Each structure stands twice: as C-alpha cells, then as structure tokens.
Simulated scan of single mutants.
Amino acid sequence: MANHILLLILLALTCSFAFASAEPSPLQDFCVADFNSTVRVNGLVCKDPKLAQANDFFFSGARLPGNTTNAVGSKVTPANVAQVPGLNTFGISMVRIDFAPWGINPPHTHPRATEMLTVLQGTLYVGFVTSNPENRLISKTLQAGDMFVFPVGLIHFQYNVGNGTAAVAIAALSSQNPGTIIVANAVFGSNPPIPSDVLTKAFQLDKKVVENLQTIF
C-alpha cells in the first residue's frame, strides 16, 4: 500500500512539472487579450467574450514585404498576441521574415517557444547551437518549401545564401508570446550596459573592441 501511495505521489509531481513547463490550456472558447486591464497575471487578462470581434483574430501584416534596408538586411514581422489579441492562451504565433540578398536574421533565442520555419522563396542557410558543454552547430541549407525546427531556448539564425536574390520565410512558434533575445543586442546593447571589464574578461577581447561593440549595439 505504501508503495502505491509513493507511486501516486511521484506521478502527481511529474504531471505538475510537465504542466508547469508549458502554457496552460484554455478553459473556454477563447480569451481575447484585454490590453487596457491593469491586472497583472502570467499572460494577459481576458476581455468580456461578448465584446469579441473578428479583428481580434485577424492580422493582415504578413501580406506585406518587410523593409530590409537595415544593417542586417532582414525584417521580422511578428503575429503574436500583441498583434492578434485572440491568440491569448492558445500557445501559438507566427512570423514572416524577409531577407535582402545576403541578409541575416542574427543569432537569437526564443525563451518560451520552439520554432518551425518554412522557406517560401530563396535559399537560406540555417542552424542552431546545442547547449554546454558540446556547443555543437546543427545546420542545413534550405530551399523553397523546406522546413527546419529550432528547439526552444537555443541560439539559432537564418542567412540568405541565394546568390544575390531576396528570400522569404514564415515560422510558427509554440507560444503566443515567444519572446526574442538577439545575442549581440543583449550582450553589447543592454541598458544599463554590462561593464566593459566584465565583457572583456568573458569574451577575451581587447577592452577597446568591447567598447566599440557597445557603441554599435
């Protein structure tokens, strides 16, 4: 009997940890985000479902090419809960990514989502890096129609290698609010800045190089 009770406790704990690591399942048809609420929860408060409208579940921004005239030559157009309030609690979102010739979506992570990318146009070299201690690069060159998965939390990137042509991709993410941490921006562009002495020691770089990177980002 004692063994059975212990087994039940272990199963309950396992289930608790499993549910804690994922976004909770909705308990109603939908939970349209109420951006005007001052209540703070792990997510966004639902507005009265009687006030829901078609536009709460609609997004037209992905039909338009993104402006890639920037330093990295890419533009990410998100469709998450901030743009589509009806996504609240559903654990899914999407992005459109436009690439200029030789443009890159720089190394970044999504702390709350796995990403599945599909190439619509062009050729992309993509990859992610496994965690310590291996830090192994897993990469692939993708053509139009190919798909690739980036596991949650791991640093990944996409680079347009299509011989001077533009590229377009879309991606689905397993969170309505996946978050994005661009590695260079976070490390060298934090506010307030990480002390240059810390970065000099961490990256084994000359302090002037670190300070120059901080001015860029």
Rank of each mutant, 00 (worst) to 15 (best):
I138N: 05
P107M: 07
A18N: 12
R112D: 05
S16V: 09
T69F: 13
G179F: 01
V187G: 00
I170C: 12
E211I: 02
Q53W: 06
V126C: 09
R63Y: 07
D34C: 04
L120H: 15
L173K: 15
S16M: 04
G189Y: 06
M147K: 13
G127K: 04
K50D: 05
V183F: 15
L7F: 11
G43C: 05
S25R: 15
T123K: 15
I9K: 13
L11V: 09
G66E: 07
K208R: 12
A171W: 05
L8N: 13
D29M: 05
Q204H: 11
N135A: 01
Q83H: 04
Q143G: 14
G122Q: 06
F58T: 13
C31H: 01
Q214D: 02
T77W: 02
P24A: 03
G73L: 07
F203Q: 00
T114P: 06
M147P: 11
A184R: 02
A172V: 10
A100Q: 10
S74V: 13
F203G: 00
A144H: 10
V126W: 15
D146G: 12
P107K: 09
L117D: 08
G189H: 12
T180I: 10
I92R: 07
K47W: 00
L154I: 00
S175I: 09
K208M: 11
L142Q: 06
G43W: 06
V183T: 13
Q214G: 09
I138Q: 05
S174C: 10
H110K: 08
A79H: 09
A22Y: 03
S60M: 04
F30H: 08
N67V: 10
D34P: 00
V168I: 11
L120P: 13
I182E: 09
V72K: 11
D48M: 03
S37M: 01
N70K: 02
S196M: 00
S190I: 08
N42I: 03
G103K: 08
N36D: 04
A2C: 00
G189N: 10
M116S: 12
L64D: 07
V198L: 06
I9R: 15
L199A: 01
N3F: 10
A33W: 00
T14P: 01
L213S: 02
A52K: 15
N160Y: 06
E211V: 10
A2E: 06
V32Y: 02
S190R: 10
N70H: 07
I181E: 05
N55Y: 10
N3C: 14
A166Q: 09
S175M: 04
T114F: 11
F150N: 00
G103W: 03
F217L: 04
S196N: 05
I170K: 09
M1R: 11
A144R: 14
L117T: 10
Q28M: 09
E211F: 01
A172N: 09
Q158E: 14
G164V: 15
S25N: 15
I138V: 15
I5E: 13
I155V: 14
L117G: 09
P178K: 00
T14Y: 12
T14G: 10
I92F: 14
Q176P: 05
N212L: 04
V183D: 03
A54E: 14
A20L: 03
D48W: 01
T69I: 14
C15G: 07
I9V: 14
Q214A: 04
T114C: 13
L173F: 14
K47C: 02
G145V: 08
R112S: 09
K201M: 02
S139H: 07
N163W: 02
I9Q: 11
P24M: 01
T114N: 09
Q204C: 05
